[in-house]
Amino acid sequence: MSFTPVLRSEALKVLSLRSLCGTLLALFAVTTAFSALAGVSETSDPGFDPLFMALSGVAPGQIAAIAFGATVVSSEFHGNGIRLSLAAVPRRGRWFAAKLTVAAAATFGTGLLTASAALVAARAGLGSEAAGLTAGEQVRGVVGLAAYFTLMALLAAGLTALFRSGVATLSTLIPFVLVVSFVIGDVAGGATDFLPDKAGQVVIHQTHDGHLGPWTGLGVTALWAGAALLAGARRLRRGDA
């Protein structure tokens, strides 16, 4: 059994579920809207970072990315639908890989579009304040944000396969992301830099002063996602469907 038919089948699954397409649409809408709002708001913050300001829609956007990654996998656990899926594709590793490939491609594609739109919208508001951004920094921000969304979606997908529940994943990840970013994140240094969301968001800052650079930061997020995916795949392959 080759990989392509499984990939096609998984892509059809995403396209034929309104909730999944809707989540991607929400990712685009909230990220762009928040960035546009941030662009026109007054700021006097000394730590003002024009790239992060322009892409500040990441905060609600990552929630949508997490929801997408969780739902892609949790939709299989509705009424034991996974049994039918695995009866059609008994090679579980291949099946999971196809599902993740589709989820990643969909998130990355939407992420690129979203980040570009957000940047354009925010720059319209920021005007001269964003003039210092180089083309390279802007490309890095756009690609980096798309990659960040993708990794957060994969992290959620892995956890959902591990917990066999989308609700468990969302109630773990979303408070984590919100609490870490808004409560602990700004205060503590050191170890919190290596949390998946803080590390991954270095890439959408113009400047960085922690342990991690833009790409090493994404690398740390990728490690988190990879660990979750390995744990999820292990549960999927070992257990009863």
């Binding site: 034929s16 579920l17 509705h78 009424g79 639908g81």
Partner: peptide, 29 residues
């Protein structure tokens, strides 16, 4: 080779019957 009905609830409620079958058909060419 093998067709099985295990559970009438296996189809996702938000999909149409046609899409449900198209997904399965695609996976096995």
């Amino acid at each position: 080779h093998v067709g099985a009905l295990l559970d009438a609830d296996a189809a996702h409620g938000s999909r149409t019957a046609r899409d449900h079958l198209r997904v399965l058909a695609a996976s096995n060419r």
